[in-house]
């Protein structure tokens, strides 16, 4: 049966990963980093939501497994953020195929499995790390005087840097607004103060 999500995932894969179009995304640094890669991860994520069983949060093992899965996705995305590998994906079709496969299977898919299994503290941790990584990359691309990628021009690098800082700002606001101004009414005080909980 074809669900709405699987159609979207297939569509994303078609747009992002199939050659003539894939090369078009890769021809520009901004399109490559901020459009193609997110689309691939999102496609994997959508596919993942189709196959991942719903979490049983009572089980501690599930939580640790969730952390492992999100960590895997983080490593995978980080790897492809290294300018050298971005370049390599442009220069070699084989590397590019590996990039596409790993981003779908080792980043998107595990994210779909892991994210629902994370507790609020772990989610906050991932969120905060994502903000500082976006700032790090943004400042790097914005201020680096030379070319980081052989396949791309310096002015694109600066655009990417600004976009990255924008993403950091967006992630910050998107996290801060509900946290500061969220409209839930809270719950009564704990009956036994000083007691432990598992977040």
């Amino acid at each position: 049966m074809l669900s709405y999500r699987s159609l979207v995932a297939a569509g994303l894969l078609l747009i992002a990963a199939v050659p003539p179009l894939a090369w078009w995304w890769e021809a520009s640094l901004v399109r490559h980093m901020l459009m193609q890669i997110p689309m691939l991860v999102l496609a994997g994520f959508l596919l993942g939501t189709l196959v991942a069983p719903s979490p049983d949060l009572g089980v501690r093992e599930e939580r640790a497994g969730g952390i492992a899965a999100v960590l895997l996705a983080t490593f995978c995305v980080t790897f492809w953020m290294i300018p050298r590998w971005l370049d390599a994906a442009v220069a070699s079709h084989r590397v590019d195929a590996i990039k596409i496969m790993t981003l779908v299977l080792l980043a998107g898919l595990p994210l779909a499995w892991g994210w629902p299994r994370l507790g609020p503290v772990a989610r906050g941790f991932v969120w905060v790390q994502a903000i500082s990584m976006a700032i790090v990359l943004g400042l790097l691309y914005l201020t680096f005087p030379n070319r980081l990628c052989n396949s791309y021009l310096v002015n694109e690098q600066a655009i990417l840097g600004i976009a990255m800082l924008g993403i950091a700002g967006f992630l910050g606001l998107a996290g801060a607004v509900p946290v500061l101004f969220g409209a839930n009414n809270g719950s009564p005080a704990p009956r036994h103060p000083g007691a432990r909980v598992d977040p």
């Binding site: 906050g124 946290v179 969220g182 839930n184 809270g186 009564p188 909980v197 977040p199």
Partner: peptide
């Protein structure tokens, strides 16, 4: 983050 989680659970938001 654990403080934040607990405060939100109890009060609804950090603003509150």
């Amino acid at each position: 983050l654990d403080f934040g989680r607990a405060l939100i659970a109890r009060y609804g938001s950090l603003g509150r």
